[in-house]
Write a protein that binds this DNA or RNA. Structure first.
Lengths: 162, 162
DNA sequence: ATTTTTGCAAATCATTTGCATATAT
DNA sequence: ATATATGCAAATGATTTGCAAAAAT
């Protein structure tokens, strides 16, 4: 019951997506959530993953690899909290898989590298204008949108991807 | 193995999304697919749904309601074929659910009404420019994108939604 | 103390698969 | 004829749930 990814447009702040564990504490202060060991651990695992996208299963595996025990359900539940807090966002890969990426609060779009998986924030005022135009053309009152971009990041552009 | 929704930008043609069963036959001519009773039936069910989004389970239920028997697997398999043919597109609702919408070949974006579920095609050359700009800014070679817009359609804008 | 969170295992849900039979070409 | 498609039921995979025990406030 806490899985909405309604994406509002608002400029992103920093260029590259990644998560600061301290953000968790900040986020928790605002809510009635508790700072527990599993949550700390998961935040750390996410932070350590850097800029790539990951699934709940990935986190579970990461935890296992480091002998950190967290239950499967806890991973999902924590991910939900982080979604609510705006610390991660759920994305849908081109093949329909669900994944998550770490992001700043109020960040809202990213380009995902199809070779290495890295994701980079997109700050795009222009998109806002484009969406306004679409609203005008279709007559819809557009409340939310979701944009996912897939491509090859600068360092993967030479790759023969295979 | 036929579920890619990599979305290329290309102008849509007609304003409102809905599916013409005849399109199936056209689509089949080009391929080595066969025109079977279950496929006809499913096309009809989709067409009858009009412009809303639907899930595989919805179709299965629709079929049941009309005493048309199609196996669950056939629904999924047919949907895959229709995806390949570009007759339907897979979308991800704001809550992360997967759904499908009927669409014209080479159509590629739609606004989905959060009140009634209707979807309308978006013809947007401007988006193309926006995406080009994003590519330039981030340094990514953008190969595909997916854009989903959610809002209230003209007739639902008075609604007190829920 | 009291409320939230956890871990587990079982439950649920969507989607896929194997395989023998049926059907379109 | 022959390749493709179907239906079934079982398999898979992801996510959720109930509940008693554990931890945070």
């Amino acid at each position: 019951m806490a899985r909405t990814t309604a994406v509002e447009y608002e400029p992103a702040r920093r260029p590259t997506t990644s998560l600061d564990p301290a953000a968790l504490e900040v986020a928790l202060e605002t809510s009635d959530l508790r700072l527990t060991a599993p949550r700390r651990a998961l935040m750390q695992l996410i932070a350590d993953r850097g800029t790539g996208h990951f699934s709940a299963a990935d986190l579970l595996a990461d935890a296992g690899a480091r002998r950190i025990h967290v239950g499967r359900a806890t991973v999902f539940r924590t991910l939900d909290r982080l979604l609510d807090a705006g610390l991660v966002e759920r994305v849908d890969l081109p093949d329909g898989e669900h994944a998550y990426v770490a992001c700043q609060r109020s960040h809202h779009h990213h380009v995902i590298c199809t070779v290495c998986g890295r994701s980079t924030d997109v700050a795009d005022a222009e998109l806002r204008a484009t969406i306004g135009a679409i609203g005008r053309t279709t007559g819809y009152a557009i409340d939310a949108h979701r944009l996912e971009l897939y491509g090859r990041c600068p360092s993967c552009q030479g790759s023969t991807s295979g």
